[in-house]
């Protein structure tokens, strides 16, 4: 048995170790300081490497298993653990297996006055043949600046920048029917108090800031009112209705935007009651047609959507 082992070792040495006799290097002084071996730490690192490989293999297995429940969780666990085990192995290497050195090194020179001066000189002297330096620099900057401007000009194609008319676009005209989410006309009789309805213009895009409405029935003054659903502050949909569930302590009904809690008074033309909105919610006048359905009686009382410089307040 021993002989076989010896033979094998000899064969391996002959096969791989025969390449060239290592040239004798002059013994250089150590750069990295020496330390004592730590076999226990090495064993720990080996174990951690094995465990990390196992977890990584588990990731592949979980990936391949089609019928696995909670696959995302298993995949995350396997991959996370394999990274964690490798991380711990690195920490053990850093703390136990790599020599602890504390080296000192001079900080780089704060500055190099000689080189600075030479650079300055090179730049200065290179221009010595120019007689009208300032003019040349001015003309050059002018040319480059204009070129830059020309390079930026195509950015104007990005959008209809000057066409701010588009910002006021709304499909609401006198006579246009209000429809619900499913596209059905809304009967005035179906609008109940203490409830909140979203309406859209019949036969027009719903994905315009000027389209969606909130419709509520007020107890006092009695009646149905409709407002643009888009908050005049930051363009979110006003989708909360604060109704007085206990009239003594709860304030009056109000429309509230969930983004920054701008609060509007539906009984007073959408006036701002609280929050950062700077102007009232535009109201849409309504009438009830012959079939009892709600229709617009005209356009909004104000500009829809968030404000911009130059927009009229009411």
């Amino acid at each position: 048995m021993t002989r076989v082992k010896d033979f094998l070792i000899a064969a391996v040495v002959l096969a791989f170790g025969r390449r060239r006799p290592s040239r004798a290097r002059p013994a250089a002084p150590r750069v990295v300081s020496a330390g004592t071996p730590d076999r226990r730490a090495e064993n720990v690192v080996l174990g951690l490497f094995a465990a990390a490989a196992l977890c990584a293999a588990a990731f592949i297995a979980f990936y391949a298993l089609d019928r696995l429940g909670s696959q995302t969780q298993w995949l995350g666990l396997a991959r996370g653990l394999s990274f964690a085990l490798l991380a711990v192995a690195c920490m053990v290497i850093a703390r136990r297996l790599v020599v602890a050195e504390e080296n000192a090194h001079p900080y780089p020179e704060p500055e190099h006055p000689d080189e600075q001066q030479t650079i300055e000189q090179i730049v200065e002297e290179s221009g010595s043949r120019f007689t009208r330096r300032k003019l040349i620099v001015l003309a050059g900057s002018g040319a480059v600046g204009t070129l830059g401007l020309a390079a930026l000009t195509p950015a104007a194609s990005l959008g209809p920048a000057l066409d701010t008319e588009q910002l006021d676009r709304t499909p609401w005209r006198r006579g246009r029917r209000l429809v619900d989410d499913a596209g059905q006309p809304i009967a005035a009789a179906d609008i109940e108090e203490e409830s909140f309805y979203t309406a859209y213009p019949e036969g027009a895009s719903r994905e315009l800031l000027g389209s969606p409405l909130v419709v509520v029935r007020l107890p006092k003054p009695r009646g149905i009112v409709a407002f643009s659903k888009i908050c005049t502050h930051a363009g979110c949909a006003v989708s909360l209705y604060r109704k007085p569930t206990f009239a003594q302590t709860e304030p009056r009904p109000a429309l509230v935007c969930p983004c920054h809690y701008s609060t509007f008074d539906p009984a007073d033309g959408g006036k701002v009651l609280f929050g950062p909105a700077g102007r009232p919610l535009p109201q849409l006048p309504l009438f009830v047609d012959g079939d009892g359905n709600l229709r617009a009686a005209g356009g909004f009382t104000g500009r829809i959507g968030p404000s911009w410089s130059g927009v009229r307040q009411r």
């Binding site: 920048a161 701010t164 588009q166 315009l208 911009w308 410089s309």
Partner: peptide, 11 residues
């Protein structure tokens, strides 16, 4: 308003 129209390509 001009800036927003450029970035969003419209309202």
């Amino acid at each position: 308003a001009y800036l927003a129209m450029l970035i969003w390509g419209g309202p």
